[in-house]
Design a protein around this nucleic acid. Structure first.
Length: 900
RNA sequence: GGGCCAGUGGCGGAAUCGGUAUACGCGCACGCCUUAAGAGCGUGUGAGAUAAUAUCUCGUGUGGGUUCGAGUCCCACCUGGCCCACCA
């Protein structure tokens, strides 16, 4: 008997996990659900060696909320899947010398086992794997839609190239000059690539932020990344030449202080403007700078380099000649790739001017009133001040001067206002193997025709497709209509580093007929960015199994696709079912990491807006509510393999149980914090659960709660429900659990165990040797209803966290029908939850001198409280000989005698 | 360089609106139990003064301010973290 006290987590957990799956506890009626709640956790990529404690932390945070909503009466849908396509999985496969296809098959199995062992309430009947053809045919479909809408185009550009991953990268995927995946320094290469016109959506992505419930820091990150800035393109004539240089600036007010112009080495005029004697130097400089990586450019960073072209631009404002220089601190992708140098009011310009002894003119005087010539960088006035040496602007403040100057320049025809964005088009091609082949076909013959077509129209065609939809077919590119374009199994899938993907070595794959002229054409051999896979997965989940099952044909869904006969939105043959999508989307709560602020979260919003515009869905924002969880820290640092501080949840689940781990992870700290994982902490949590278990299984021996105690238990129960309910909504699980602990502590304190009549030496009463607990003979006391209710409530409050233990006691101890997870969340009465007796603080001049224990209603009466407070010896002492000038009274809380 | 966030016991962290700072847990100490150890249970635990569970002083990174009253609000600074970064 005595040994049975210990909670056998392995037995209990596996028992319920099996049963839940059998009876479909977490599989909602996807077609008919009335109160749909789509609770989504960012799916993981199954490339590493399984889930670590960080995954367990965030997925549990999401699961706890889903379970809570379920008990609140919602039809909760919690799907799970794998972001299994893409460079991260491929790199991992390469590192372990395994084919990604096999690696994925193995790791997804392991992930599934781990996720199940954590006891999460996922709907395992609807999973997604982005590397499976049934999924990626729609990723390809999405690409084709983008192209048809004029949102996918090719252009030659200076792009980020990772020499280690041997592929190009989007701007978002370059972190501080390094590859997001492998950490290798990124270089710049000029290549022709596929882009998505995300910049067309810049303003809408910005505007949409106002309407969604996201953490402010994520919104700010997106705003900064989009980086909308008002400015002006100023056109400068070049002395003695026909070229005009356009410089974008947000600070035209300082233009009277402009003393030079700097072009990016990649600027089309960079070489052209070099005078004869400078040509050699300029050529060399351009060549040198292009060989540098971004990192190198930056490392030399503050030490500016440059070369003079020999040409001069004219500042129309004052007719001054400005030497035109070339320097690699000016980036082609920013603004217009050319900068007007105002060294007095821009630190970088100042450094450049200093280095090459260019004149520095002050045109702004700041609040320090320094009007002296500028010789030190500290004097550079960037932020605020009053205009000087600036003609008609003199005396104006900066804000006013900017407006005045912009109007002036536009009126004179020297330039045009232009809003600039930091956001750039999404580079979507990858020269890799493990991804969806870009479903496009290129026909050289058609391309030649289109070149003449462009020539006819007077458009110089440089590989950039125009937005006008009629243009695309003239560039020789056609979207593949027979989807999917299956990724062939390649044994040697290693990236080549030639600027082309591994598929380029397989004529069987790329040799196709031109869908337009029937001639020999070539299929695109690059694959798409992995972030395209994850940009729409949330649309897929609810319809998994629905779209296919509605199909009557015997052929596989992959083969059924025939664009001519396909009705786009028929349930049988589309990525998502329109009715189900209406019911379940947008996602009600998205739970994930903040590190995706300008990656996945931005791309998913963009794709959703495009699909909304193309009328494939009826909502413009995929995630109206997003919660950004924090990270688990171990030994003071972020978990990582290289640090060797990765915590594998498996061993903890085995040793202490999933319930213990779940509770501990949620108790460590707030969900958006960075709590430290400790072994001693989890042991403490196991002890807590052991005490809870003890409370339940020995429940039948509790025979008494005294009148006073039963009331206390009852009140505490209502207080606990209130606290837990409120804090759950705010994802403050740590305080939720501490409230439950307090409740458990009280129950244990008040419990009185009977001498068991039936059992002998191993009776439960023996187990507890506390001197404070009294033992009574069973005959003289009765059980109270409050006690039984308290235990039911306790099981329910624990259910989102300790799902298995709660279920076990709910069914096998408390005799309820399964499942505690479908029972309705307990309610509380506000009046009962309010304390009956309160402690009122008594202060003299703001210092605590006594506390009063008063009945709640009395504590609200000023006269009563003041009277009682003055009676307190210590208060009287402090008031002696002083004149009370004022009495501050906060009903039910505090009284403060002011004598000063 | 820019943006955002945070500094509370030995540790993780509590503290709705400005109103008893340190809830809950870990750790530690002591006690009970035990032949012993462990487990379990109980008590204590911000610092200092003190015979004292009475009482007093100090105390939420530093310095100032507002207020009857500040962890919370304002100003300046210091430290740490995260994100972005030669963005014109």
């Amino acid at each position: 008997m005595g040994k049975q006290i210990s909670f056998n987590h392995q037995k209990v957990e596996s028992k319920w996990q099996k049963l839940w799956e059998e009876i479909g506890t977490y599989t909602p009626d996807i077609v008919k659900a009335k109160k749909a709640f789509y609770n989504l956790w960012m799916f993981p990529y199954p490339s590493a060696e399984g889930l670590h404690a960080g995954h367990a932390f965030s997925s549990t945070g999401s699961d706890v909320y889903g379970r809570f909503m379920k008990m609140k009466g919602y039809d909760v849908f919690q799907p799970i899947g794998y972001d299994a396509f893409g460079i991260h999985s491929e790199n991992y496969a390469l590192s372990i010398n395994n084919h990604p296809k096999e690696m994925i098959a193995r790791t997804t199995k392991y992930y599934e086992k781990q996720l199940k062992s954590l006891g999460h309430g996922y709907d395992w009947t609807r999973t997604v794997n982005t590397s499976e053809v049934d999924y990626y045919r729609w990723t390809q479909w999405l690409f084709a839609q983008m192209f048809k809408a004029g949102l996918a185009y090719r252009k030659a550009a200076f792009v980020n190239w990772c020499p280690s991953c041997k592929t190009v990268l989007a701007d978002e995927q370059v972190i501080a000059g390094e590859c997001e995946r492998c950490g290798h320094k990124v270089e710049t290469k000029e290549l022709e690539q596929w882009f998505f016109r995300i910049t067309d959506y810049a303003d809408r992505l910005l505007g949409g932020l106002e309407r969604i419930d996201w953490p402010e820091k994520i919104k700010i990150a997106q705003r900064n990344w989009i980086g909308r800035k008002e400015g002006i393109n100023i056109e400068y004539k070049v002395k003695g030449r026909k070229e005009k240089i356009i410089c974008w600036t947000s600070r035209p007010d300082t233009n009277f202080g402009a003393t030079f112009i700097v072009l990016s080495p990649e600027h089309p005029f960079a070489q052209k403007l070099a005078t004869k004697e400078n040509t050699q130097k300029v050529k060399q400089y351009i060549k040198d700078s292009q060989e540098k990586t971004k990192e190198e450019r930056e490392a030399e960073g503050r030490e500016k380099t440059g070369v003079f072209t020999g040409s001069y631009a004219i500042n129309d404002l004052n007719g001054k000649e400005m030497p035109i220089w070339i320097s690699d601190f000016v980036l082609m992708e920013v603004g217009s790739g050319a900068v007007v140098g105002v060294p007095g009011h821009d630190k970088r310009d100042f450094e450049f001017a200093k280095r090459y002894k260019l004149p520095i003119i002050r045109v702004v005087v700041g609040s320090d009133n320094d009007k002296s010539p500028m010789t030190k960088i500290e004097q550079v006035q960037e932020e605020e001040g009053t205009m000087v040496n600036s003609g008609f602007l003199n005396g104006m403040n900066i804000a006013k001067a900017i407006g005045a100057m912009m109007d002036h320049i536009e009126k004179k025809g020297w330039g045009r206002k232009k809003t600039s964005y930091h956001l750039r088009d999404w580079l979507i091609s990858r020269q890799r193997y493990w991804g969806p082949p870009i479903p496009m076909i290129y026909c050289e013959k058609c391309a030649q025709k289109s070149k003449s077509w462009f020539a006819l129209k007077g458009i110089s065609f440089k590989g950039v497709l125009h937005k006008d939809q009629s243009d695309w077919k003239h560039a020789g590119w056609y979207p593949e209509e027979n989807l999917p374009v299956e990724l062939p199994y390649l044994k040697n899938y290693q990236p080549k580093g030639t600027g082309r993907g591994p598929l380029a070595g397989h004529p069987k794959f790329y040799e196709v007929k031109c869908p337009h002229c029937g001639g020999t054409a070539r299929r695109e051999t690059d694959v798409s960015d992995t972030f395209l896979d994850s940009s729409w997965y949330f649309l897929r989940y609810p319809s998994v199994g629905i779209a296919e099952s509605a199909s009557s044909g015997s052929s596989s869904p992959a083969k059924r696709d025939d664009s001519a006969t396909r009705t786009r939105h028929s349930a049988a043959d589309f990525a998502w079912d329109p009715e189900i999508t209406k019911r379940w989307l947008p996602v009600n709560l998205y739970f994930g990491g903040a590190e995706h602020a300008v990656l996945h979260l931005m791309y998913a919003r963009f794709v959703t807006q495009v699909l909304y515009d193309l009328k494939h869905i009826n909502f413009p924002e995929p995630f109206p509510r997003f919660f950004a969880h924090g990270l688990v820290i171990k030994d003071g640092a972020k978990m990582s393999k290289s640090r060797g501080n990765v915590v594998n949840p498996d061993e903890y689940i085995k040793k202490y149980g999933a319930d213990t781990l779940r509770l501990y992870l949620m108790f460590m700290g707030p969900m958006d914090g960075y709590p430290d994982f400790r072994d001693t902490g989890i042991e403490g949590m196991r002890r807590f659960l052991e005490r809870v278990w003890d409370l339940f299984v020995n429940n039948k021996d509790v025979i008494l709660v005294e009148e006073k105690d039963s009331r206390e238990v009852f009140v505490k129960m209502h207080q606990t429900i209130k606290k837990v309910t409120e804090d759950m909504e705010k994802f403050q699980y740590n305080t939720t659990i501490s409230a439950i602990m307090e409740f458990v502590n009280l129950l244990r304190e008040k419990a009185v165990y009977a001498e068991s009549a039936s059992s002998g030496s191993s009776s439960p009463a023996k187990r507890d040797d506390s001197a404070t607990r009294t033992r009574h003979s069973a005959s003289s006391y009765i059980r109270c209803a409050e006690w039984d209710e308290a235990l039911l409530v306790l099981a329910q409050l624990l259910a989102p966290f300790a799902s298995h233990l709660a279920e076990e006691v709910w069914v096998n101890v408390l005799g309820q029908k399964p499942s505690v997870h479908t029972s309705s969340w307990p309610s509380y009465t506000k009046e009962i939850a309010e304390k009956e007796e309160v402690t009122v603080a008594v202060q003299v001049d703001g210092k605590l001198r006594a506390t009063l224990k008063l009945k709640a209603q009395n504590s609200k009466l000023k006269a009563e409280v003041v009277k009682a407070a003055k009676k307190e010896k210590n208060v009287a002492n402090w008031l002696k000989g002083k004149e009370t000038r004022k009495v501050v009274f906060i009903p039910g809380k505090l009284v403060n005698f002011v004598t000063k």
